[in-house]
Write a protein that binds this DNA or RNA. Structure first.
Length: 510
RNA sequence: GGUCUGUUCGUCUAACGGUUAGGACACCAGAUUUUCAUUCUGGUAAUAGGGGUUCGAUUCCCCUACGGACUACCA
């Protein structure tokens, strides 16, 4: 088997979509598994859609995701340059070669001409309105014009494109690692533009030429390329590279969570989850789209989640580190059907990864939030908080979001809980508890527990009955981690202060 | 419209042609807990429809239905 060389080849037209990350991931996994090479090529042949900053964004996103590039834009390599806009001359040469061999031709048709042609075909009830074998001889190109006329047009600076002369009525076979054999009759294919009038190649030419020159062994790309794969096979054949043609694997698409259709930014927005790995600010509209990273997703969790969208190891194991994915991955086990993205599952993965971390490793998340709020906190306290919050958080920011009460005393109290649980018994117990605390010299969770139970039993009240109200007094809410440990972290004085405030503030419902 | 492609619980998916169609997420219920959460136990829930082939089809073939992609001098 030849050396595995795969490439991820995005075009810098905006933020990298989550589906793109998955494509990059699958490429990366295959490369690593076979000790191969992961290449990043930037396909920037469309100058009109170029978005400044997009390339840097792609680089940063891949880095965040833990997908390392061995060769290509950003790192260099033996087949540089890796930006297609810098390889214009190379493509031109091969386009020229195709013309010489009779596999391509110059076309001088204006946009208007093309439109007229399409309308005409439509009027005739023709299903196929493509520029191809059926009608290429009716158009203005080097197939219909004399050599002299062509030369003159070229010399005069007339705009032209180079089109591929698709052979007529040939069975073109694409062997796909996921789909099996796909056979298309070449008459269905149109004479695709290979070189645009601005001198840039189209995707089809650039892609085939680069994959060949860069010795790409496997092309793993989205499903949307399957229809043009036969064209690419034809191109390899005409260029005499058929034996060096890479193996294809067309990935099923990521779909919207509800209904049908492919996952779009709009759909993700509606469902309230990110679609880009990192936050992206559109340079034109200045619109900001929050990324997975900024939303609190851990890269290893997102990668694990993404890997399982369309692939599975065939076992019941679900948690996979990047290294384990590299070990277990196989193109054969990629599914054929599109996968709907269920953000719940992504959250579950995130939770799993978060929990797997040590208290010490979690603490920086809390500290970071606190620094933003300008709230000081000792490391010991932060570790304690993270330790008891750990089982209840999904995102790193939850330590702060769900644990604010550790730092800020409640000013208001959940009214539903107050009206249901705040009563005379509560007031009696808490008042007595508060007094008892005042007499204590030492304080921790165990002492707190013993004290509240003692106080309650003295008053002939079951401690369980007042616990929710107790929590309300300390945190302002109805839920949270263990109340005794919470008190230990809060400290005796703060507990007394909060109980006093609650007693003075919460009205008793009769 | 045409070409290509796909279809197993709500979602991601497993199942050499022979399984009570399995797992995970979500959901629901019970247990534990001072609450919520966690944890544990249990539960609801699927082979799109119709024809073949076969002793036997989720699995192979055909048709239908419904999705999706493509149909640009965009990638």
């Amino acid at each position: 088997m030849r050396d595995v060389r795969v490439r991820f080849a995005p075009s810098p037209t905006g933020a990298l979509h989550i589906g793109g990350v998955r494509t990059a991931l699958y490429n990366y996994l295959l490369a690593r598994q076979h000790k191969g090479t992961m290449i990043l090529r930037i396909e920037d042949t469309d100058q009109t859609r170029f978005v400044p900053g997009a390339e840097a964004y792609i680089l940063k996103s891949l880095e965040w995701a833990g997908i390392k590039i061995d060769e290509g834009v950003g790192v260099g390599g033996p087949y540089a340059p890796y930006r297609q806009s810098e390889r214009k001359d190379i493509y031109k040469q091969y386009a020229q070669q195709l013309i010489t061999k009779g596999n391509a031709y110059y076309a001088f048709d204006s946009e208007q001409d093309l439109e007229t042609m399409r309308e005409q075909l439509k009027k005739e009830g023709n299903d196929n309105q493509q520029y191809g074998s059926a009608n290429r001889l009716l158009m203005r190109n080097s197939l219909t014009l004399s050599e002299g006329e062509v030369d003159e047009l070229l010399k005069s600076g007339e705009e032209y494109v180079i089109r591929f002369k698709v052979p007529k009525d040939q069975e073109v076979k694409v062997t796909d690692l996921i789909r099996g054999e796909v056979i298309v009759n070449s008459s269905q294919l149109d004479d695709k533009v290979l070189m645009k009038s601005d001198g840039m190649p189209t995707y089809h030419l650039a892609n085939v030429v680069d994959d060949y020159l860069m010795k790409i062994s496997h092309v793993i790309r989205g499903d949307e390329w399957l229809p043009s794969a036969p064209l690419h096979v034809l191109l390899y054949t005409c260029l005499g590279w058929k034996n060096d043609m890479p193996q294809f694997a067309h990935l099923p698409l990521l779909l919207k969570p509800d209904g049908n259709g492919k996952l779009s930014k709009r759909a993700a927005d509606q469902m309230g989850f990110p679609i880009f790995p990192l936050t992206w600010t559109d340079p034109e509209s200045k619109a900001v789209a929050k990324g997975f990273m900024e939303s609190g997703y851990l890269p290893e969790a997102l990668i694990n989640f993404l890997a399982f969208l369309g692939w599975n190891p065939g076992t019941t194991q679900e948690i996979f580190s990047m290294n384990e994915l590299i070990q277990s991955f196989s193109v054969e086990r990629i599914g054929k059907a599109g996968a709907k993205l269920d953000i719940h599952k992504a959250q579950w993965f995130n939770q799993q990864y978060l929990r797997a971390k040590s208290d010490e490793a979690l603490t920086p998340y809390l500290i970071e939030s606190l620094e933003k709020e300008n709230i000081p906190c000792s490391k010991e306290k932060a570790i304690k908080i993270c330790s008891i919050m750990k089982e209840r958080v999904t995102f790193p920011q939850d330590f702060w979001e769900h644990g604010k009460f550790f730092f800020i005393a409640p000013q208001t109290f959940d009214e539903t809980v107050a009206s249901k649980k705040w009563n005379n018994e509560v007031v009696k117990v808490l008042s007595a508890y508060k007094d008892a605390l005042g007499r204590l010299t030492e304080f921790d969770a165990a002492i707190a527990k013993a004290t509240i139970e003692m106080v309650a039993s003295d008053l002939m009240i079951q401690s369980g009955k007042i616990m929710q109200a107790f929590r309300l007094a300390l945190t302002g809410g109805a839920s949270g981690p263990d109340l005794m440990i919470t008190q230990e972290i809060l400290g005796k004085d703060e507990v007394i202060k909060r109980i006093t405030f609650a007693l003075n503030t919460i009205p008793i419902k009769i």
